[in-house]
């Protein structure tokens, strides 16, 4: 079943169904959870809750990624 997430403003369609949780989405995108701040529909999701955060069709997800240096 097709489902769509809006990730950082861009629609992404998942032909094989959505990743079930935020942790699973980050794994698919090969993003290290320790270096990302996530917001869903404008609300921040704490990293400790990524694994329990279920994804649903049409969610707007902002992934703010950090690289080192300062």
């Amino acid at each position: 079943m097709n489902a769509t997430l809006k990730i950082n403003g861009t629609e992404k369609t998942f032909d094989q169904g959505l990743p079930s949780t935020l942790t699973e989405l980050l794994a698919q995108l090969e993003i290290n959870a320790a270096t990302v701040v996530a917001e869903i529909n404008g609300d921040i999701v704490e990293r400790k809750n990524f694994a329990q955060t279920e994804l649903k069709d049409q969610m707007a997800i902002e992934l703010i990624r950090f690289v080192g240096g300062g």
């Binding site: 320790a34 270096t35 990302v36 701040v37 080192g68």
Partner: peptide, 18 residues
């Protein structure tokens, strides 16, 4: 947020926002 390490940046931003 003026840290060097990526995970420290994440920690500070998450803490302030949440």
């Amino acid at each position: 947020e003026c840290f060097d390490r990526a995970d420290q940046k994440q920690m500070l931003v998450e803490t302030v926002l949440s």
